[in-house]
Each structure stands twice: as structure tokens, then as C-alpha cells.
Design a protein around this nucleic acid. Structure first.
Length: 429
RNA sequence: GUGCCUAUAGUUUAAUGGUAGAACAUCGGGUUGUGGUCCCGCUAGCGAGGGUUCGAUUCCCUCUAGGCACCCCA
């Protein structure tokens, strides 16, 4: 007797039954459609990469705990990709010098991170990655943000259902300088940045406690506080006028102004609490938030990350991008009741039951003929009484049934029955 | 990885220290060329392993999986 195996999928992964696959396809199709509309080109990279390329720019925690790594037969250490950026950067370094710039790339791919699964966070997940390589101009930042906004808007969400919050690493740098946090040890400086990153999660007492124990004085904490509560650029300038000439502020002003002129003003705002990673981003950073009270969460984000290419021994090139995930997008669609429209995207399907086994040959011929006309024909494989056939069609949500038996064949016709109206139409074979 | 909570047919669930009842779904029948309603019936379950006990689905432990918080979010 063999051991009975569990039919459960591995931890943090999931099966995609046709119904769920449909929702996923709807999300992917929407992503792809908008990216193509922007003239972006689709690419793909291998599922595995040398483990080194993830270690080069990541902390030890990430490399050791969250990376799924194994040895191949030649003793090479390989990792299942946990993100796309190193792969696409590696790929682009091969052609960058000889390519017409900028490159506008996107991909839809799956990734694995060895995390503790939670709502909206699985070990295997799918992401859209959009990047512009080779343009350091604000126009690239603006286009990336516009693309991110249009990807959200393509799902036809209600007003006020999400917001895009913008910040800039240069502004964060400036405020760390102003507050004196830059003179702290790198360890304490990191603690300060982490505390800022958690601004909305922690109470004011906890924030103060953490900042004080990192070595900041009252004055410094006050400056940081003034920065962090400045939602919107007007408030920021009012609260900290010293930042007036800061490059990050000017960039943010220009970006917001451009997007307002393009008609996206309702969806975006400057928000100092958007920090994102520490070493990676060096300019504009942003996050998209679901504003549904049932599902308040950061959905995805991105920003400018000039300078990743150097790990491949190439000269740096400018890059800006973002990456939304399938699961958070799904939660967004669910939280705003936006998944009904998926049915409209499913192509029509016909059910052609085999009403009489004697006619199998002729029914097969008809199916072949109709398929040649590009109709989707679900063919019954076993003989089935008409009552059962119609019941089956109902259960499978099939709206068109082709009825063809002895009588019809004798006349050289078949009937198409509309399962919603009940009407039947005669067609000649 | 840490802490807390959860686990009963395919799904949603009820009850119980003396081995489980329902609804929906599936399948079959009422119905041999026209469906969705309705009626009847069959199949199907205590996540896995161990302990306590005369006896465990129930109490305890471990594991597995899920949820929440932390960590992290490249």
C-alpha cells in the first residue's frame, strides 16, 4: 500500500481553478493592454538566477531567510527570482550600450519569497513590472506615474477609491540633514529612517521614544515631526520653508503639476510618510493606497533607482519603475465590487452535445467546421439525452447550445438555442 | 523566524468525553428531443501523528495548513 499523499498545495502557493484563473487573466490582460498602449515592450527572464545577484544589493536577512536557493548539478547556487529588477537590469546591461534610449519594458511573471503567508501576501505571487531605462529626465518619472495611474483607472474604480502618494528620496535626505540624523552612526540613522517608515503605524509616544533612543534631541524630533505631518506640498513649504530650494521638492512640484495638467490631480498628493527601501531609491518614490476602510493598505509602489547596473560591472544607467502584484490588485477589486465585469470579457462558448451515438461522425464533422469558423465549441463526448444536455449547459453557464440530431441532419441544418431567451435559430450545415 | 487564534463531507456549518446532523454542490431517479423550479434517493467528513482515558472529533503535545500582529517588504 502506497503512502497517501496530501492534495494540499505547498505552503504559500495556490491552485488556480478556472474560475480564479479567469479573474487573474482579467487582471493580467488589463495590465498588458495599458502597457502596450504606452508603447512598452514585453519581456521575460528565467525563473532562476544566480543567488549572487540578489545578495549584491540586499541585506543578509533577505539573502538568507527570504530567498529560496538550491544547488544545481554543477554546484551553482541558484535562487528562484524574488523580484524582477535585478534580472531585468542584468538583461538590459547586455544591450544597453547599443540600444536606442530610452527602453520601456514590462513583464508579467511569478516570483517566490520565503515569507509567512498572510492575506495579500503569499510565497508565490505574480507581478507586473514596468520600467523605463536610459532616461534621467522628469518626463520619465511622470510617464511612469501616469502609467501607474492609468493601470489603476483601467479597472474603472470609483472616485476616491485609491490615492497615489509621492515623495522624493532627496527630500528625505534633506530632512535627515536638517535634523542632524545624518551625523548619527549608520546604525542609528537606519533606526531613524525605519521609524519614519512606520510613522502611520506607531503612536506618537513610540515614535518619540525610538527617535530619542536613536540619539536625536528634542529639536531634531520636532523637525522630523513637522516634515512627517506635511501632507501636500503647500503644508510642507509652510512647515519647513528651508526646503524651498531643495531639488527633491522642485522635482515633486514639477511632477505633481504635470500630472495635474494631465487631469490626474484628484488621485495624487505629496505624502512624506512614503519612504520605501533605503539604498535602492534615489529620487522620486511613490505608493498607491487602497482607501477602502475594509482594506486600507499600500497596494504597490515604485520609484527611481539609478545605479543598479554597476553590480554587473556596467556603467550605471538611469531607471525608474514600479511593480503591482496580483493579490493586492485582487483585494482592491473585491473591496470595491469591481469583479462583475469579468464575465463580459469571456468569449462566447457553444455546447454541442452528442444526442445520438450513431451520429458521432457527423457531429464531429460539424464541430470541426464550426471551429474552423473560429467558434468555441465544447463537444459532448458521450451520448447524452437532450434534457441532460441542457441541464449541463446551465450548470456550466454556457449560453448557446447546438442541437443537432437525426431530424436536423436529414434536413442539412442545426439549431442554435439561446439558453437565456430560449430562442432557437436554424442554420444550414 | 516570533507571539496569539483557528481547523468537522467538495463548500458553508451543528452537536458531543460514549465515534457525528443539516444546507448547498455532485451523482442517480421522477422526465426516451427541449433546460433553469419542484420532489425523492445515493455518495461523501472529525487536517496528520502521538499522549491522557475503559473510551478522544471533544482534553493535552507535536506537526501541517490558514488568519491576525510582529519582522520584513529587495
Amino acid at each position: 500500500m502506497n503512502k497517501v499523499l496530501s492534495n494540499q498545495e505547498p505552503k504559500g502557493t495556490r491552485d488556480w481553478f478556472p474560475e480564479e484563473f479567469l479573474l487573474r487573466k482579467y487582471i493580467f490582460d488589463t495590465w498588458r493592454r495599458v502597457c502596450l498602449r504606452y508603447g512598452f515592450e514585453e519581456y521575460l527572464t528565467p525563473l532562476v538566477e544566480s543567488a549572487d545577484i540578489y545578495r549584491a544589493k540586499s541585506g543578509e536577512d533577505i539573502a538568507n531567510k527570504e530567498l529560496l536557493t538550491f544547488m544545481d548539478m554543477g554546484g551553482r547556487e541558484l535562487s528562484i527570482r524574488p523580484e524582477m529588477t535585478p534580472s531585468v537590469t542584468r538583461m538590459v546591461t547586455k544591450i544597453y550600450a547599443s540600444s536606442a534610449k530610452p527602453l520601456k519594458y514590462f513583464s508579467i511573471a511569478n516570483f517566490m519569497r520565503n515569507e509567512k503567508p498572510q492575506r495579500g501576501r503569499n510565497r508565490e505571487f505574480w507581478q507586473l513590472n514596468c520600467d523605463i531605462f536610459g532616461s534621467d529626465s522628469l518626463a520619465a518619472d511622470i510617464e511612469i506615474l501616469q502609467l501607474a495611474l492609468d493601470i489603476m483607472l483601467e479597472f474603472d474604480p470609483p472616485q476616491n477609491s485609491f490615492s497615489l502618494a509621492i515623495n522624493n528620496r532627496k527630500l528625505i535626505e534633506a530632512i535627515l540633514e536638517l535634523s542632524g540624523a545624518n551625523e548619527l552612526s549608520s546604525e542609528n540613522r537606519l533606526a531613524v529612517v525605519r521609524t519614519l517608515d512606520k510613522w502611520n503605524k506607531l503612536s506618537l509616544e513610540e515614535i518619540n521614544e525610538r527617535l530619542f533612543s536613536a540619539g536625536l534631541n528634542k529639536e531634531a524630533v520636532k523637525i522630523l515631526e513637522k516634515f512627517m505631518i506635511s501632507i501636500g506640498l503647500d503644508n510642507l513649504l509652510k512647515n519647513i520653508p528651508e526646503l524651498k530650494d531643495n531639488a527633491g521638492l522642485i522635482e515633486t512640484q514639477k511632477i505633481i503639476e504635470a500630472l495635474e495638467n494631465l487631469g490626474y490631480g484628484d488621485w495624487l498628493e505629496f505624502n512624506p510618510t512614503v519612504i520605501r527601501g533605503f539604498d535602492y531609491y534615489d529620487g522620486m518614490v511613490f505608493e498607491v493606497f487602497d482607501k477602502n476602510p475594509e482594506n486600507r493598505r499600500a497596494m504597490f509602489g515604485g520609484g527611481r533607482y539609478n545605479g543598479l547596473a554597476e553590480i554587473f560591472g556596467e556603467k550605471n544607467f538611469p531607471a525608474v519603475g514600479f511593480a503591482p502584484g496580483d493579490e493586492t490588485t485582487k483585494l482592491f477589486l473585491e473591496s470595491w465590487g469591481l469583479i462583475d465585469r469579468i464575465k463580459q470579457e469571456v468569449p462566447e462558448k457553444y455546447y454541442l452535445p452528442l444526442l445520438n451515438i450513431e451520429l458521432k461522425e457527423q457531429v464531429n464533422q460539424l464541430a470541426k467546421k464550426l471551429r474552423c469558423r473560429n467558434l468555441n465549441i465544447l463537444l459532448g463526448l458521450e451520448e447524452q439525452k437532450i434534457v441532460k444536455a441542457l441541464e449541463f449547459a446551465n450548470k456550466k453557464n454556457i449560453t448557446k447550445v447546438i442541437i443537432v440530431g437525426e431530424d436536423e441532419l436529414a434536413q442539412g441544418v442545426y439549431k442554435v438555442k439561446d439558453m437565456i431567451s430560449g430562442e432557437e435559430k436554424l442554420e444550414s450545415i
